[in-house]
Amino acid sequence: MLHTVNKSPFERNTLEACLKRAVPGAAILLIEDAVYAALAGTTLADAMTSAAQRFEVSVLGPDLAARGLENAALVEGVTVVDYGGFVDLAAAKGSVQAWL
């Protein structure tokens, strides 16, 4: 399963809800305003570091770039993917759960 999350974790509990339900080894892709969760140095960074050990966490590059975060330091274990990578993930995981 690929889980996508698109809301800011500072404003909504959507990411938290997803992290509670995803099974170990599941893929989680952070898109749109959820990309802020991937940043190092925030109050959420520790929780995300631990999530990245349990799940395959990635973040969408164009959404980082749009927000001025192209070169920002990310939480360890989180990888950046482009739109092609998004498609590949969806294809590899078979199904997608979008946490809106």
Partner: peptide
Amino acid sequence: VWQLRRGQMPGAL
């Protein structure tokens, strides 16, 4: 506060 972040490139979107 994210609105004021430097280096935004929403052209990507």
